[in-house]
Design a protein around this nucleic acid. Structure first.
Length: 1038
RNA sequence: GGGCGAUUAGCUCAGUCGGUUAGAGCGCUUCUCUGAUAAGGAAGAGGUCCCAGGUUCGAGUCCUGGAUCGCCCA
């Protein structure tokens, strides 16, 4: 113990307190010391998912950081060695876009004109533009992470490790360049990865044209005749200019149908949908395969059939045709759709792409050259209509992907791109996922598992500037070399690279080892998710350095991010480590839900409903913010962020905690208690310690299962028991300096400070420091181990508290003030309950302010007994006959049942002609209150009050009123709780008589050295039951 | 269109193995206690457990279908 504790503020400002604690932590380097103390212990590994510091942190970052913090703290207190290396995600398009915006760039060309070196230098600065905000917030919310030694994905060493990973993947034959149709943003001129399509706001509901186009047959086959019109449907008219073919399903039924004077070809199932009410007549019915090879006139003649090869502008067979929408004949533009592209590959069609990288048509599209393709939709449709080639044009509301950064609608566009063949290791990804424990559990085989099952190859390359350069060199002969280290590059080229970023690395070439021609680096950089997914080894520059350090810290025991990282970091971490090491890089992952505003809407700048974390921190403090996130809900369910609720955290948890603590300190100081010794404990003490042991056990069990929510709620329940029952019932012992009481409360508070340390690290440390202080900080102590429990006592106390509750309710019903003593409370209880209440009768009597407790043997003496079947027991036994049993039980005589139960005799009943016996567990008894008594009942429990008063009781009640008035006067006079007084009373004789009759009691309660009854017209007036009392108090020497 | 999750009091949330009067906190009304407490205690008001079927002696809980919301995918 730390000696007599220092005085405690009555009305603390938690934010100010936290600043002081922070100062102490800085002074004593507590965070680092907490790790140093565990040096040599078994590591418990946490990986920090790196944020980007190019914008200020928001409330959702506080949420993530609170959950990233609490379990490492807990594990450290359990004795594990928990390094926490920070990290920053540096590369990527968001940074580039921010710089572009600053420089006023509108096109990608602007960057090249400006110079890549200068542009990237600006990106390098920009990426840490808000790092001070982040550092400040991180410290303020007590997220203990090592930011001084944080990894940064843009550092040369980090990049070199990523190169190693890519080379390893290349050597496994899993890195390839493919020509694929990809979602492409013409504004940013970048290909988007599937993760980026998953960014919020990517899919938006938009209206696009929906057009049905007539394609007259020029070269009929099978059932077709020249001039028949193939009907195709598209929502992207701009792709019609490069129509290459029409796809039909070989087995699907198609029809030739007469419509006015024309003959159209359409899938039978869609005939009515397409032609609608227009009169039509089916001329022929045939499977799609019969018209394979038919030639037709394209919608536009900008590009001749020959350009696509021999199969251009003919009918082809595809397996992707659906009858859910459209016509069953699919317009195919090879460059602009994934199915289209595959079909083209299958039939050997030449890719013709008349759209430039900036999203405009090139010169091949005559009058439309230079126009943005989406803008041209309307004119193209009008053109078709003018030429009689349009069956119908409508608009179509559907969800379409947009660039998540700039909002431009994406084009599906055939482009060469570098891929990692993750589909080849899909089974290994699924196997790796099996080894991971997910919170919540359903993500494992739900959202994340499903994502893995539908895995597509990882589109790795980006045609951008600020990123890890793809370490692939290629010579004019097409020989590819992947470089895994700077040494390797130096050996090949003779150049030692200092900064591996573009454009410097672009200048490094070397003679191709195969053919001797100069190999140049391909221009792409890589997806930033590969950067962050590489952090398990790249943060240590492994394997080039620290290979052993990496090995010792792989895989992570725990990672934690928001649920939106399912397709982001969670995936890239798993994919990279499975590619390289065939196992998951994390064992446990906690997913966090979204933060919504009070109306359940997403927080966004445009709605103006963003909660600035600093507002919360300045007003309520970090402990309150943390406690709210940790206990308000299961973290994956998300939060409706509510400032009132955070205030409630203070009012309902932190303040009662503080008040209990401050109560202890107040009386420890008043009694000069430095080191209270255990011994002489009461049942109440033993109960408090048992509840403490119970809570320690429960908190450990929950925290081991990453359940901070229920651990925290249990802690709050313990505090409530302590504050509103233990202290409430023990006050006199603290006034009297009872050592066992001090020792008990001290143990409870110090243990609570340790249990609370991972949750609310500030207030926990403050309390620990003042009450114990063996260590410089609570965060350097070991997490409490459960002491001995007395479950019988806990159960007994629960029963006694029910009796108290019933008694108080009875008082309330009778409108009988608690200050008025009563002769007796009559308690009806079963034998076990009676024993419990008798054991704790002092507590019950004092709390109810009655002279005596009287017991009656059964509740039926206070009301008529009711007998009910115990469904839980009887249900399984009687099944379908249960309603008959219930009837039989209702027909039993309650008095007879009560006797039989008391005597332990079985009760016979008859069900369906068979006799059965019911035992005590088969029945539940309850009392019905009788008229005219003040009885409260609950189950088999009932408490009645004897309301009759005699003069003695009445005088005692008045004496207590007098004491109350004197206490008020003491408080008004600003006296300290331990000040002694000279008391003078005056006023109504009945009151003075009562005070005289109980003079010792009055003096004792009010710490009066002397009492006089001579106060005439002076002193503070008070009214008691219509009578006047005058009170004067004067401090006298102790 | 598909997947995952959610829906319980005005608000925020519990609700165990299916067991018969569905709970807590906040807020509201009334009373009460106070020698730490902006706290505590008692009473009251407040419920279509999203809806509809089904299984069962018995469903907030299990099954099927649907609605709404959120997230993810297409």
């Amino acid at each position: 113990m730390a000696g007599v504790p220092q005085p405690v503020e009555k009305d603390p400002s938690f934010p100010a307190l936290e600043e002081r604690v922070l100062e102490r932590w800085r002074e004593h380097d507590v965070f680092r010391e907490s790790i140093r103390r565990r040096a040599g212990a078994e590591p418990w590994v946490f990986y920090e998912g790196p944020p980007t510091a190019n914008g200020p942190p928001g409330s959702h970052h506080v949420l993530a950081r609170v959950f990233k913090d609490i379990f490492p703290r807990y594990q450290t207190m359990l004795g594990r060695y928990v390094e926490r290396k920070g990290g920053w995600d540096c590369h990527g398009l968001p940074v580039e876009l921010a710089v572009e915006k600053e420089l006023g760039f509108t096109q990608k060309d602007d960057i090249e004109r400006y110079g890549i070196a200068e542009f990237n230098a600006r990106c390098r600065e920009k990426v840490f533009s808000h790092v001070e905000d982040w550092n400040r917030l991180t410290e303020r919310i007590a997220y203990w992470i090592d930011l001084d030694d944080a990894y940064r994905t843009m550092d040369a060493a980090y990049i070199e490790s990523v190169w190693w990973a890519l080379k390893t993947i290349w050597e496994k034959g899993l890195l390839y360049e493919g020509f694929k149709v990809v979602p492409y943003c013409p504004r940013d001129q970048v290909t988007l990865s599937s993760h980026e399509l998953g960014q919020p706001g990517a899919y938006r509901d938009v209206e696009d044209p929906s057009v049905y186009v007539r394609l007259p047959v020029t070269k009929p086959v099978g059932p077709l005749a020249e001039g028949d019109e193939l009907l195709v449907w598209t929502t992207t008219p701009w792709t019609l200019v490069s129509n290459a073919a029409v796809a039909v399903d070989p087995d699907l039924a198609y029809v030739r149908a007469r419509e006015d004077d024309r003959v159209v070809v359409v899938a039978e199932a869609l005939l009515d949908d397409v032609l609608g009410d227009a009169e039509h007549e089916v001329l022929a019915r045939f499977p799609g395969r019969e018209i394979e090879g038919a030639g037709y006139e394209p919608p536009f003649d900008f590009i001749p059939a020959e350009a696509y090869g021999p199969r251009g502008h003919t009918v082809l067979l595809g397996d992707f045709v659906t009858t859910e929408a459209g016509t069953g004949l699919v317009h195919t533009a090879i460059a602009f759709g994934e199915d289209d592209f595959r079909l083209g590959e299958q039939y050997g069609l030449t890719v013709v792409n008349p759209v430039r990288l900036d999203g405009t048509y090139d010169e091949r599209i005559g009058p439309y050259a230079g126009r943005g393709v989406k803008d041209a939709d309307t004119d193209l449709v009008e053109d078709l209509r003018a030429r009689g080639r349009l069956l119908r044009a409508e608009s179509y509301l559907h969800s379409y992907p947009h660039c998540w950064r700039c909002g431009t609608p994406l084009l599906y566009y055939a482009k060469p791109s570098w891929y990692i063949a993750t589909t080849k290791i899909r089974d290994r990804l699924l196997a790796a996922n099996e080894s991971v424990t997910w919170y919540p559990e359903h993500v494992k085989h739900g959202r994340f598992g499903k994502w893995l099952e539908n895995n597509v190859d990882w589109a790795l390359s980006r045609e951008r500037y600020w990123g890890t350069p793809l370490p692939v060199w290629r010579c004019p002969e097409g020989h590819v070399h992947t470089v895994g280290s700077f040494d390797e590059l130096e050996e090949l080229s003779g150049v030692r690279i200092e900064d591996p970023h573009r454009p410097y690395v672009d200048d490094v070439g070397f003679p191709c080892p195969h053919c001797g021609q100069r190999a140049e680096r391909v221009p792409e950089v890589i997806d930033v998710w590969f950067d962050s997914g590489s952090m398990p080894f790249a943060q240590w520059h492994a394997p080039h350095e620290n290979a052993d350090v990496f090995q010792a810290r792989f895989p992570a025991d725990y990672i934690c991010e928001a649920l939106d990282q399912t397709r982001g970091w969670f995936y890239s971490l798993l994919a990279v480590s499975t590619l390289l090491f065939d196992r998951s890089s994390f064992k446990t992952v906690l997913c966090l839900g979204l933060i919504l505003d009070e109306q359940g809407r997403k927080m966004s700048k445009s709605l103006g409903n963003v909660v600035d974390p600093w507002d919360v921190l300045d007003r309520y403090g970090a402990d309150a913010f943390r406690w709210y996130f940790l206990t308000a809900a299961q973290p994956w369910d998300g939060y409706r962020l509510n400032l009132e609720k955070i205030g409630e955290s203070v009012r309902l948890f932190l303040l009662p905690l503080w008040n209990t603590y401050s109560f202890y300190v107040l009386y420890a100081r008043a009694n000069d208690v430095a080191e209270a010794r255990a011994g002489g404990e009461t049942d109440l003490d033993r109960w408090a310690l048992s509840r403490l042991a119970d809570t320690v056990e429960f908190v450990r069990e929950r925290m081991d299962d990453y359940d901070a929510t229920n651990a925290g709620r249990a802690l709050a329940a313990l505090l409530d028991d302590l504050s509103n029952w233990y202290v409430r019932r023990s006050r006199r012992r603290f006034w009297d300096g009872d050592e066992a009481a001090f020792a008990t409360l001290h143990t409870c508070l110090v243990t609570i400070s340790q249990l609370l340390a991972p949750f609310c690290p500030f207030v926990a440390d403050e309390i620990y420091g003042n009450l114990d202080g063996t260590e410089p900080s609570v965060h350097l102590t070991d997490f409490p181990v459960p002491g001995e429990r007395d479950e019988q006592l806990e159960a007994d106390m629960a029963v006694a508290r029910v009796a108290v509750r019933l008694g108080l309710a009875a008082r309330g019903q009778a409108k009988m003030k608690l200050r008025q003593p009563l002769h007796a409370a009559v308690v009806a209880a079963e034998a076990g309950e009676r024993a419990a209440i008798e054991r704790l009768s002092d507590l019950v009597r004092e709390e109810l302010n009655v002279k005596e407790l009287r017991f009656v043997s059964a509740a039926d003496e206070l009301g008529s007994l009711e007998v009910k079947p115990n469904y839980r027991v009887l249900g399984p036994r009687f099944g379908k006959d249960m309603p008959i049993v219930a009837l039989a039980v209702a027909g039993l005589d309650p008095a007879h049942v009560a006797r039989a139960l008391r005597d332990g005799e079985p009760l016979p009943i008859s069900v369906g002609g068979h006799d059965h016996e019911l035992g005590p567990d088969d029945l539940i008894t309850a009392t019905k209150p009788l008229e005219g008594y003040e009885v409260e009942r609950e189950g088999s429990h009932a408490v009645a009050l004897e309301l009759g008063l005699d003069d003695g009781l009445r005088r005692e009640g008045l004496a207590r009123e007098v004491v109350h008035a004197v206490q008020a006067a003491r408080r008004d006079a600003g006296l300290d709780v331990s000040d002694r007084i000279a008391l003078r009373l005056g006023g109504d004789d009945a009151l003075l008589d009562a005070a005289r009759a109980h003079e010792a009691y009055v003096m004792g309660e009010t710490l009066a050295r002397t009492v006089g009854y001579d106060l005439d017209g002076a002193g503070e007036p008070a009214r008691i039951e219509g009578m006047e009392l005058r009170v004067a108090v004067e401090r006298v020497a102790g």
